[in-house]
Each structure stands twice: as C-alpha cells, then as structure tokens.
C-alpha cells in the first residue's frame, strides 16, 4: 500500500441522534484524513476534537479490553478501537457507523444497556467457591481449562447481545453474554452451584429461546463462541443430576496435584 493511499481523505457517515432536538436519527457525513494505522475510534476522536464536538460515543481503554466502544460499523457489531479504518472504507471510500442495534439509543452511539446488565446478573455471574479454600491454589487439568474455550476472555462489550435477533424481539431472553458466562461457571471445576445455574438457564427465557442464528459468533470481537456455549448448556441441562454428581466428586480432589 502506498503512503498516498493510507493518507487519503475518507468519508465517515455517522448516525446522529440528539433526544433534545431530533425526533428520528439521521445520517451526517464527515471528511477525515487517514493516517497509517488509524482506527475507527481514532477517526471519531478526530471528528470530535477538530470538527464537531457534539458527536457522542463511549470509549475508555482504546485497546480492546474495556468493552465500551462496541458499535455498529458497516453493518457489523465490533469494537471501534480495534477496527482499522482502512479495512472499512473499501466501498465508496465511506464507512458507516451507528449505535448497537435493538437497544434504545440515548444519544448518537450511546445506547441504554440496562437490559444487558440485568440479564447478566440473573445468571449469578460470580464464582461460588467450595467452603474449604485450600492453602495453596486450586488445581485444574489442561483438559478442564481447554473445555472453557477462553470464555473468561469476554469483556462484556454487548456486541453479541445486540446482534441477536431474539433480543430484538424479546428483551426477557437471557442473551448470549449471560449464557456464555453461565457456561463458564458451570464448566468451572471450582464452582459449587452448577445445578442451580442449569436450572436458571433451562427456563423458558433461557437456552431454549436461542434459535441458533449465530450472529453472536460473528459479532464477538474476542472471537468467542456463545452459540457453542449455549449448545453445551442445552446438553448439560438435560442430564443435570448426573453432571452435578460428577462435579461434586471432582471437587473432593480440587487441591490435589493433577496426575500428568
């Protein structure tokens, strides 16, 4: 790529909505001169500092770990701070940015994520450890770690939640983020409440409400797989008792060394 190409001027089309004056959201175009390595978030900063201070969005860490900057970029949910703008302006030299879909818009790219957090809390996302905590560390085998499929890497950005068509229809559904967390805790050998969690997710608003649309996988900026987590929970929920017993048995040996 020539230097010229990475430094050309591109159009950033932003969905604007100010609840004080607008009835409906509208699109507004800004011209931004790219620099090598510029991200979508950089472009938004550029617009906010030099062109229009009223453009509103959430951001904090700007390196893909806080989850604040999830938005709808060229029809896909992703993190603005880890998306290079050069990859997004291939069509018409333009990138289109809007708020996360299916959620109430507060202003511009800022959405109301209340339902997201409420559903999250319903699965008791915290670890419920055994009563006797060992003096040294809990021991987990490599297979047990692998079975979690990196689910602990979730940064609660909401990209999966707001890509889900079921969430679009019914905010009572737990949602991919909450189910992924439930999966993480259910599979965690240290967790002592797998039965209770499986009970929660097998309600009418739990795993059965997922229609396997896969949008959550495509949306997740961390490359996680909520659909697979939901399929696993569905299997475990159907043999809950057996799974609970196996886990209780496993917990008796939590602080013993793993036989290699």
């Amino acid at each position: 790529m020539s230097n010229n190409d990475t430094q050309r001027t591109v159009t950033v089309r932003i969905q604007r909505f100010n609840p004080d004056v607008d009835k409906k959201p509208h699109m507004q175009d800004y011209q931004v001169k790219m620099w090598p390595g510029m991200t979508i978030l950089d472009a938004l900063h550029e617009i906010k500092t030099h062109q229009d201070g009223s453009v509103t969005y959430r951001r904090s860490c700007r390196h893909g770990i806080c989850g604040s900057c999830a938005m709808h970029i060229n029809g896909r949910n992703t993190l603005a701070c880890k998306t290079p703008i050069i990859n997004e302006v291939k069509k018409n030299n333009t990138v289109t940015i809007g708020p996360l879909p299916y959620l109430p818009v507060i202003k511009d790219m800022v959405v109301d994520r209340t339902s997201f957090w409420e559903q999250y809390l319903r699965v008791k996302p915290w670890l419920i450890p055994p009563d006797d905590i060992p003096e040294r560390e809990f021991r987990m085998s490599q297979e047990e770690v692998d079975a979690l499929h990196d689910a602990e890497a979730c940064i609660m950005c909401g990209a999966c939640y707001s890509s889900c068509a079921v969430i679009g229809l019914n905010k009572k559904y737990l949602g991919p983020h909450a189910l992924l967390k439930a999966f993480l805790r259910v599979l965690d050998p240290r967790d002592t409440a797998p039965g209770e969690r499986l009970e929660i997710v097998s309600q009418a608003d739990g795993v059965a409400r997922c229609h396997t649309i896969f949008n959550c996988i495509d949306a997740c900026p961390k490359g996680l797989n909520p659909t697979q987590a939901i399929e696993t929970l569905r299997k475990l929920a159907q043999k809950r008792q057996k799974y609970e017993e196996a886990k209780a048995e496993r917990q008796k040996h939590l602080n013993e060394p793993i036989p290699s």
Binding site: N77, P101, C164, A165, T212, I213, F214, N215
Partner: peptide
Amino acid sequence: MYTSTGFISWLLRR
C-alpha cells in the same frame, strides 16, 4: 436489522 446467513435461515425456517 442484523442480517447474516443465520438470520436468513431463521426467517426461512419460520
């Protein structure tokens, strides 16, 4: 609306 092959398959299924 968030479109994808999964979304289309879901619509057709319904």
